[in-house]
């Protein structure tokens, strides 16, 4: 038996909007730790890891570890039927081939339940080793989204370079080139407006902008984004989900042949 009650149901709606275009089908894993997901895109270039910790739910009952295969597009269709202020409860019985999403309006005058068919998904769970990164950049998530969108109108790839001068995003295309440099800036009114650069050593990597733009669909989940870079590792683009966990996107770099 599984019953997870999330008062801030909009979080789950936002999570689905953030990942449904990157991943078609995925297993949601439920354990004492929380509600999690790990999935790759169909071309095995990017990986998304989601964790919503059990403590973040108002009620969290998960009698035994359960993996539920869902089509994310269908799940998104169902969650779009929940109001932004609704409380969302996810329910499943042991051995059932369906999951139920229950939506309660804040004043309890409307209760809806949507039952969705589960699917068997052969997914490969990958071990992600703990790593020391050469550079970690924290910046406003809206700023990062803006840069990725702007650069993708010029080119297909972005070179992200971190030096002591700051973090530089560069692209080139048929019509020309573009460079955006963000310097460390901690003299701001609100902490989420800061750009903080922790650099162990300079690093420069190239990535497909199509994926970066897809990751920025998580922008509504967090005011800040953390970008971790190392020359021999995929980039990590992390959006923290307040008091609940995170959504992390890993993207393999492009390399010179």
């Amino acid at each position: 038996m599984l019953e997870l009650r999330l008062v801030q149901g909009s979080l789950l709606k936002k999570v689905l909007e953030a990942i449904k275009d990157l991943v078609n089908d995925a297993n949601f894993d439920c354990s004492a730790t929380g509600f999690s997901l790990q999935a790759m895109d169909s071309s095995h270039v990017a990986l998304v890891a989601l964790l919503l910790r059990s403590e973040g739910f108002e009620h969290y009952r998960c009698d035994r570890n359960l993996s539920m295969g869902m089509n994310l597009n269908n799940m998104s269709k169902m969650l779009k039927c929940a109001g932004n202020d609704d409380i969302i409860t996810i329910k499943a019985d042991d051995g059932s081939d369906t999951v139920t999403f229950m939506f309660e309006s804040p004043n309890q005058d409307k209760i809806a339940d949507f039952e969705m068919k589960l699917m068997d998904i052969d997914s490969e769970h990958l071990g992600i080793p703990e790593a020391e990164y050469q550079a970690i950049v924290r910046m406003p998530s809206s700023e990062f989204a803006r840069i990725c969108k702007d650069l993708s109108s010029i080119g297909d790839t972005v070179v992200i370079s971190v030096t002591k001068e700051g973090v530089k995003f560069s692209t080139r295309g048929d019509i020309g080139t573009a460079n955006v440099v963000c310097r460390q800036n901690t003299t701001v009114d609100k902490p989420e407006e800061a750009t903080v650069i922790e650099m162990q050593e300079p690093v420069s990597l190239t990535f497909a902008l199509r994926y970066m733009n897809s990751f920025t669909k998580a922008t509504p989940l967090s005011g800040t984004v953390t970008i971790s870079l190392s020359s021999d590792l995929p980039i990590v683009v992390e959006y923290k989900i307040a008091e609940m966990g995170y959504i992390r996107f890993y993207l393999a770099p492009k390399i010179e042949d």
Binding site: V45, E124, H125, L126, G127, A208, A252, K254, E256
Partner: peptide
């Protein structure tokens, strides 16, 4: 010419 690496070349199946 640039080549796109796969995520599977960095992370092992567990």
């Amino acid at each position: 010419m640039q080549r796109q690496k796969s995520i599977l070349s960095f992370f092992q199946k567990s």
